[in-house]
Design a protein around this nucleic acid. Structure first.
Lengths: 186, 186
DNA sequence: GCCAAACCATACACTACTGTATGGAATCGC
DNA sequence: GCGATTCCATACAGTAGTGTATGGTTTGGC
């Protein structure tokens, strides 16, 4: 069998492990058994577990940053939020969940996650401002939507994604009381 | 020193460990060192780690179920959601975060968490229906708010809680497009 | 005050890993 | 086709933890 591995093979397997078992599964010897090689291979490709973990984190960050949000831009502006929500709700975010759980145990992961959050919140904020929301409301709603995303990743429920996305998108873009000091719209 | 412990002492310490280090810190020998006793004490009070974990889970579930939501009922109905959100946003939910992370590694914890979710979502749904939302919209928004709560617990950000709570409560109680099939309100 | 029960310390055998050292096999450049 | 490099297996020593067995202290009941 062609069991000559590249470090990328290890990293790819690392992501599989994250999805299936969480970061607790990222043990050199278990992974070696799963890949039918010995730990010798692992320690040739990576100095130690820390180095491997770092590679996973960087890989994840990079994948997110060059991410799929791009293709949303082709949709009409007022459909983007709803589409985004629906898209997320129909896909269990297992890697996201694993990374989030991991972040609580590794400061470097927490850093990566914080950066990704900033990115996502910024994007959502722009989207909401595009719907005419004032900056402050757009920011807090963007933050909340991102929290909702994280929560969904960790505690998925069977839902009617399309209906839910339509309603939530409408709620988040409503301008009722969207100003801090309740001065009513004309 | 008065180092004669009850099993409740161990459990209390277990929650402290969860908040400070997550479930990864729930090791018999580390806890024994922290409490200045030997593991002999631990294994006298608990059959094994699993039994200890179970006690923690039950303790958490029980605490949540008889929970503090009660005192919200004294507030005027239309202030309850906003107050609840503001209250959560001003308190880092460290135990909640630890339990949620733990749930990904232990099915019993996941079960407990799922039950708590059901409870909370039910409560939020009633709240929202009290604001005149149709059942379906109330449910999906309740689910989303609970996800947001979980996300906040895992990825807290410094926010202006009062302003954010006011705006979010307004957004979640808006009736714009709250029906699945977009039949406009009169 | 003393016996039983409750509680704890210590020592032991065990598991699941980590990282290193060394040598051997596969493969590429030429 | 063979030398250098790349890649991997194996064996070793170490760490952090588990659970058990046994005996030693406290403490409350009477």
């Amino acid at each position: 069998m062609a069991n000559r591995l590249t470090s990328q093979d290890w990293i790819t397997h690392g992501f599989e492990v994250l999805k299936a078992q969480g970061h607790e599964g990222l043990k050199a010897d278990r992974m070696a058994r799963a890949l039918k090689v010995s730990r010798g291979s692992f320690y040739w490709h990576f100095a130690d577990l820390d180095a491997f973990h770092l590679a996973l984190i960087k890989g994840w960050s990079a994948a997110i940053t060059e991410a799929q949000i791009a293709d949303l831009a082709t949709l009409p502006a007022d459909a983007q939020l709803e589409t985004l929500i629906a898209r997320v709700l129909t896909n269990p975010q297992r890697l996201e969940a694993a990374i989030r759980r991991w972040a609580g145990a590794d400061a470097r992961v927490a850093d990566a996650v914080a950066q990704v959050d900033t990115l996502r919140i910024g994007y959502l904020r722009e989207l909401l401002q595009g719907h005419g929301l004032p900056p402050a409301a757009a920011l807090s709603r963007a933050q909340f939507i991102n929290w909702g995303y994280v929560g969904f990743a960790l505690a998925p429920l069977p839902v009617d994604a399309a209906t839910m996305a339509r309603d939530l998108a409408a709620a988040f873009t409503t301008k009722d009381h969207a100003h801090a000091h309740r001065h009513p719209d004309p």
